[in-house]
Design a protein around this nucleic acid. Structure first.
Length: 410
RNA sequence: CGGGGUGUAGUUCAUCGGUAGAACGCUCGGUUUGGGACCGAGAAGUAAGAGGUCCAAUUCCUCUCACCCCGACCA
């Protein structure tokens, strides 16, 4: 990709009033654009990052046997009335009427999934069912805040599993928990798996995946030695306590919730009549669990964790491009940089080439630092027939041959 | 929804009773290229909206709207 063709270009100023780092940097670097409070466009760069996040999630969920699909975002009132959530979740749900028919914009999909299950004549051998999709969620947050971290319209991956028994549900629940840990690890995020309440989803407790960060809105308590962690909404411990499960000490921190899993039970199936016939001919409700990850919230979280005063520093696995190619223009290097660019493309490497003319070297470097691609390659008079290699996260510059560059990238 | 803050050029801000100015960005011409270059020329604004006070309002007052922050609430 040539930078000259990329929309939009980076900008020096952060938006008026923006305080959150993810907000300032994602807007300045051209990853997102705000339409209104809590509503953002994913610009080409932001879209690329989110696609990479989605692919990591997709790979790990498919590994558990889950199948991807896509459900509608506009739902009839009737299906929500079946579980009573048209009323009980009114606060977060966008509801509207058109030609005397009432609808909701999706804030989750349990009802839709249970409707699918009951309609499709499921037999014992069909279980467990593991279905997911990536889609926009609409939630009427009382207050949108912190850039893209709390939006009213955002992207979510939601997975739903249906099981014959609680034991089977718990088994898959644990499997998804492990898959989530792997997903976040691949994005270089260290998460705490935290016990929390089920909110409007269930009266049972759930598990949240929390990234420690000062802009986070949740407060969690966790052990400095073992995996014990609780959200303060249900916490029975406080900072400084002795851990209830080991001899460690309880610490506290603000944290960003990037994922949440719910062992929902049979309530949805009972209310909606999603029943199966067991070996003895009895009608029984299926066990349901749901599992969410917010890719757009992850976009913001990653910036909160990975940035410095010059800009973003993307982890390799979700960077919009693998390398940022810069040339310091002079008549001798122009043909060379074109060759390097073509060769990188040829090797299948995702490269963003700042091909602008009439732009100083300093501006190109500043642009590269702001966008935050992990590796910067420079071709110039100074580098001669070599290529300069510099990592965004460090200061060291190395002169390598093209072959060495390719070797390192492969 | 309660409290606070901010709305002036594309963007970030200055001006604060006598109807607007800078920087960045943009356009044109030229010179530049290792850390957000330089020179020259130029385009760009019903000062968020409505009402009020005043000889006169971007400036003071009232209401509305929008955005940001704190709180309540929430995945």
């Amino acid at each position: 990709m040539k930078y000259s063709l990329l929309f939009p270009k980076t900008q020096k100023d952060a938006p008026r009033g923006a305080e959150a780092e993810n907000h300032k940097l994602l807007v300045r670097a051209g990853f997102i654009d705000q339409l209104m409070a809590g509503s953002f466009t994913l610009l080409p760069l932001g879209f690329r990052v989110v696609e990479k996040i989605k692919n990591i999630i997709r790979e790990e969920l498919n590994e558990t046997g889950a199948q991807e699909m896509l459900m509608p975002l506009m739902h009839p009132k009737e299906v929500w009335n079946e579980t009573g959530r048209w009323e009980s979740a009114k606060e977060v749900m966008y509801q509207f009427k058109k030609d005397d028919k009432e609808f909701a914009l999706s804030f989750t999909h349990e009802e839709i999934v249970v409707d699918l299950i009951r309609k499709h004549n499921i037999k014992l051998s069909d279980f467990p069912l593991k279905l997911y999709h990536f889609s926009t969620k609409f939630r009427h947050e009382l207050r949108a805040k912190s850039g893209i971290l709390r939006a009213r319209e955002f992207l979510m991956k939601d997975l739903y599993s249906a099981h014959l028994t609680q034991v089977d549900m718990q088994k898959y629940y644990e499997e998804v928990k492990r898959a989530y840990i792997k997903i976040f690890k691949r994005m270089e995020l260290s998460v705490k798996v935290v016990e929390a309440s089920g909110g409007v989803f269930t009266d049972k407790n759930s598990h949240e995946f929390q990234v420690l960060a000062s802009v986070g809105e949740d407060t969690i308590f966790y052990c400095d030695k073992c995996d014990f962690a609780q959200n303060d909404e249900i916490a029975k411990v406080k900072a400084g306590d002795k851990c209830p499960t080991c001899d460690g000490k309880i610490l506290t921190s603000k944290a960003i919730e990037v994922g949440n899993i719910f062992p929902l039970g049979t309530m949805y199936a009972e209310k909606m009549g999603a029943l199966y016939t067991d070996e003895k001919g009895a009608q029984k409700p299926v066990w349901l669990a749901s599992y969410g990850i917010g890719p757009t919230r992850l976009l913001g979280t990653l910036v909160e964790i990975y940035h410095d005063d010059k800009g973003i520093m993307w982890p390799k696995s979700i960077s919009p491009f693998e390398v940022h190619l810069v040339h310091v223009e002079d008549p001798g290097t122009e043909p060379t940089v074109q060759k390097v660019y073509d060769a990188l493309i040829e090797k299948g490497i995702e490269v963003l080439w700042d091909d602008r003319t009439n732009v100083s070297a300093g501006e190109k470097f500043a642009t590269a630092d702001l966008i935050g691609i992990p590796i910067r390659l420079v071709v110039s008079k100074k580098t001669g027939d070599k290529i300069e290699w510099k990592e965004r996260s460090g200061e060291k510059v190395e002169l390598l041959s093209f072959e060495e560059v390719i070797k390192r990238l492969e």
